[in-house]
Design a protein around this nucleic acid. Structure first.
Length: 882
RNA sequence: GGGUGCAUAGCUCAGUGGGAGAGCACUACCUUGACACGGUAGGGGCCAUAGGUUCAAAUCCUAUUGCACCCACCA
């Protein structure tokens, strides 16, 4: 318990090792329904089971842990529900990699065996990330840990699919979707990452049949011309009007295709004529539907040219492009090639260029689901923090398109639809049906596809609480209190949870969404595997401690903004932890003879005691308010400043002489205040730095065997707010600072005691200064003499004027009068500059009449203070002979 | 094409209507009975540019410039 057992340098490793297991074993994180207590609930964004904790997770979970620990201390029944995500594409890719190392492919293995491998993989690696979250200090209820593919969540997925299907909100269609040739699956529109890429505009002659004319076509993807089925021009375009209805002899392919008119064509862009390839372009697909054109597929699922591509069959799409352009050129059909930068769709997982591809897929009809999801946000039933993300959300929801939910993967929730081999009818069911719902045939085959991973995460806030059962958990904890997540998954996840919650629970999934930014590297780039610029949170925890990492991630940045990762800032956080450690070490070292049963009598409090209580009172209020506003960074900053600049720099320093030099009553009282403020401060800091605060808190005499996690959040009593004490301390601090300034300027050696003459008028703070002059003596190193009026002003003395008080530091023979004069002259000039500004304001009639009274009053008192200061410095200067 | 964010000390960033701030870096001094991962004192900024609103603007409005990001089917 005693501080002497504490090393002088804080070692996060040994401290952190002590506490997580203790918390978890004692079930301090566990929460059950308690109807008389108010719930506070956060569901954790489930990290992928493939996962390695990254800085984004560290930030996200630190923010959540702060909120949860704080609310728990406030007395809420606080549930933080953790879990992991099966992450279809990502996990399947990992398992396939593993197989590849054994020389196997998933197809060789077969679906069933492959899934066994995937589950084994999940069992082996799925816990890695949750253990890393433990290192971070995350106080989530592991008893309730869930997985998107566990029985409950899978049941919820089936139920949702069925309900949406029965409402006509899920349909299957032959449509053009985004195909990733590498992942070998369709992906949804938001999974396509559009990046501007330098490319080319190829101008190609399309000869009109039986005419010497040709239509110039500009395209960025010449290889798709092999699948062209028409050329479209804008209706009424004078250039091409006479050709509409005629046929084009499609170069190379040698097919005939019609010239048609369609509003889609922009006559201003390119050549005003567009080649139509319904099988390989979403716009052309639409045009093709309107004109009942055929769909000629020339590129297959491996991005290789099909048999329809004639002699180009079997070539990779880029190879085909190169060779085809060459051929067109040699045929004299290539007009020119221009550089052209355009947005190219890439797979967000693997960055492969997406190929628009025709296939039968499942979709969710979004419009009917979006509307109520827009309403709950507009009505304010669900609030985004920061508020600006509301627009991002609404904008997307209002322009939403149907969601392609089928994936050609094996790892995931298999689509609960069976096709009849006899009549072709679909049967949708939660349990595998034994006969066709239409013809009762037995030849049923289940749809081979699985659902988009986000389909199950969309249900997370209620599937994890027991839905579709009507559980007590759901009734008690839903809607959850707040969702904390990064701005990069507002569309992927937040939006989908909102419409799902509204649809199936008839209520918002959470009342507030706290959006934070991304963690960038020191150069402001996104941390990514390919750049190799990621910083591993576990490495940081090992070098600097989890508390430091948490503190660093939370400070020095505004809600919603991105955050750059700087090791200097991490060092700063570690130094802060060390400061706390050593301040506590000092306090604990001095508590060996402390009678913890004793209470402090307020009458015996010193000015410093009253001041530190008052400051603590304000800090507790501000920290609480900032947390209420989700302003964790500001709360942390306020605590940092209080601990370092007030508790350590002033209070502890003032406590020392009273601890060692006073009587036993003084010592006891000082011990009491030191420990009491330390206790309260640790409690305020605990949500941010859980380990170090627990460790120190339990060392305090009365806390042995209790946990800070269950301590009550500090709500200071009214008496502790003491404006007078704050004012008095401020004046004394100014006096001390000015004496120190003088000493430093005059090169007085730090150990040497100075004579400090303070001239304070009788009607002013004289008595107060006299009473607490010991503070000045200790902290400015000197002997203080306070007098109403000095008989003779010492000429061999440095001078300062502070708050209506004159300070002289006599220095026999040390004062260089001219040096002192110029120092004072500089100070006088500064004072006069300020004074002029203030007087300017006060002579302005409109300021006096329009500014609020307290602002005017403030300026008046500033003027008084400054003019007193000006006069005394001027007098002093005159005395010195200037 | 539409939208958002950012621009403040050498660096990284707070502050968002009434006295320009912090951390790091820098200068000088200090091993003072918690801490050199420390202490004390200090230097350093027309708060991007141009207008406007206001008694008062780094802070609100408009425009401009630069940087970053998001959305969008113009071949």
């Amino acid at each position: 318990m005693a501080g002497t057992e504490m090393p002088t340098v804080y070692d996060p490793g040994t401290v952190e090792a002590k506490w997580y297991g203790y918390w978890e074993k004692n079930k301090f994180f566990h929460t059950a329904v308690e109807p008389d207590r108010e719930p506070f609930c956060i569901v954790m964004p489930p990290p992928n089971v493939t996962g390695q904790l990254h800085m984004g997770h560290a930030l996200d979970n630190t923010l959540q842990d702060i909120l949860i620990r704080w609310r728990r201390m406030q007395g809420f029944n606080a549930l933080w529900l953790p879990g992991t995500d099966h992450a279809g594409i990502a996990t399947q890719a990992k398992v396939e990699e593993q197989l590849a190392r054994e020389g196997l492919s998933r197809h060789q293995l077969g679906r069933e065996k492959f899934l066994e491998r995937a589950w084994a993989w999940k069992e082996q690696y799925g816990n890695q990330i949750t253990n890393q979250l433990r290192r971070l200090g995350a106080s989530c209820d592991w008893d309730r840990e869930r997985f998107t593919m566990d029985g409950g969540c899978s049941g919820a997925v089936l139920e949702v699919f069925l309900q949406l299907y029965n409402k006509g909100l899920i349909y299957r269609d032959y449509y053009i979707t985004n195909w990733c040739p590498r992942c070998q699956t369709t992906i949804s529109d938001i999974e396509v990452d559009h990046q501007d890429r330098p490319g080319h505009f190829y101008y190609i002659k399309y000869p009109v049949k039986n005419s010497g004319e040709y239509i110039p076509i500009a395209t960025t993807r010449p290889e798709t011309m092999l699948g062209d089925v028409a050329v479209a021009v804008h209706p009424g375009d004078a250039r091409y009007g006479h050709l509409v209805g005629k046929n084009i002899l499609l170069p190379v392919a040698g097919r005939e295709i019609p010239v048609i008119e369609d509003e889609y064509v922009d006559p201003e862009f390119g050549t005003g004529a567009v080649k139509i390839t319904p099988a390989h372009d979403p716009n052309d697909f639409e045009v093709g539907m309107r004109h009942r054109l055929p769909q000629v597929q020339v590129i297959n699922r491996n991005a290789v040219m099909t048999g329809e591509a004639g002699k180009y069959a079997g070539l990779d799409r880029w190879d085909c492009r190169r060779r085809l352009v060459k051929e067109l050129d040699s045929l004299g059909l290539l007009i020119r090639v221009e550089d052209h930068t355009h947005a190219v769709g890439h797979c967000y997982r693997c960055s492969t260029v997406i190929e628009p591809m025709l296939s039968k897929q499942w979709f969710v009809r979004m419009k009917p689901l979006a509307e109520p999801a827009i309403r709950v946000v507009k009505d304010g039933r669900l609030r985004f923090v920061p508020e600006r993300f509301t627009r991002v959300y609404l904008n997307w929801m209002e322009n939403i398109r149907d969601w392609c939910i089928s994936r050609q993967l094996w790892w995931g929730h298999r689509i609960p639809v069976w096709y009849c081999g006899d009549c072709g009818e679909m049967t949708v069911a939660k349990i595998p049906p034994d006969q066709c719902s239409s013809c009762r045939g037995k030849k049923l085959e289940q749809d081979p596809d699985v659902l988009d991973t986000w389909f199950s995460s969309a249900l997370w806030p209620f599937s994890t609480l027991g839905w579709p059962q009507k559980t007590l958990d759901l009734a008690y904890f839903y809607p959850t209190s707040v969702l904390v997540t990064g701005r990069d998954i507002i569309f992927f996840w937040v939006a989908r949870m909102i419409f799902s919650g509204v649809e199936f629970m008839d209520d918002v999934p959470f009342r507030e969404v706290l959006i934070h930014g991304l963690v960038l590297d020191a150069l402001g780039r996104k941390m990514s595997k390919s750049l190799g610029n990621g910083v591993d949170p576990i490495d940081v925890i090992e070098s600097h401690g989890a508390d430091s990492l948490r503190f660093m991630l939370v400070t020095g940045n505004t809600p919603g903004n991105d955050l750059r990762f700087h090791f200097e800032r991490l060092d700063g956080a570690r130094n802060f932890a060390n400061k706390i450690w050593n301040a506590s070490r000092f306090v604990l070292m001095n508590l060996y003879d402390f009678d913890s049963g004793q209470d402090l009598s307020r009458e015996n409090m010193t000015l410093a005691d009253r001041w530190i209580y008052s400051r603590f009172h304000r800090v507790a209020e501000v920290v609480t308010r900032n947390l209420e506003n989700y302003d964790m960074g500001e709360a942390a900053r306020v605590l940092y400043e209080f601990i370092w600049n007030e508790y350590c720099d002033w209070y502890i320093e003032l406590a020392k002489p009273r601890l060692y030099g006073g009587d036993s009553g003084d010592r006891a009282a000082t011990q009491y205040v030191l420990a009491d403020i330390l206790r309260g401060t640790l409690e305020l800091l605990h949500p941010f730095m859980p380990y170090i605060t627990e460790d120190i808190w339990q060392r305090l005499p009365v806390h042995k065997g209790r946990t800070i996690m269950k301590a009550a959040w500090p709500v200071p009593e009214k008496w502790s707010l003491d404006q007078e004490a704050e004012g008095h301390m401020e004046l004394l601090m100014e006096i001390i600072r000015s004496v120190r300034h003088i000493r430093s300027e005059m090169n007085v050696s730090p150990g040497k005691k100075a004579e400090i003459l303070i001239e304070a008028p009788e009607d002013g703070p004289r008595e107060m200064i006299q009473k607490w002059s010991g503070y000045v003596e200790t902290l400015a190193t000197g002997n203080v003499l306070v007098q109403p009026a000095l008989a003779g002003k010492p000429d061999q003395a440095a001078h300062a004027a502070v708050g209506g008080v004159e300070i002289y530091v006599p220095m026999k023979g040390l004062i260089d009068v001219s040096q002192e004069s110029s120092r004072l002259a500089r100070e006088l000039a500064a004072v006069e500059r300020d004074l002029a500004k203030v007087r300017d304001k006060l002579s302005n009639q409109s300021f006096l009449s329009k500014a609020p009274a307290e602002v005017v009053e403030k300026e008046r008192s500033k003027e008084t203070g400054l003019s007193v200061k000006q006069m005394s410095i001027a007098k002093r200067l005159k005395m010195l002979g200037n």
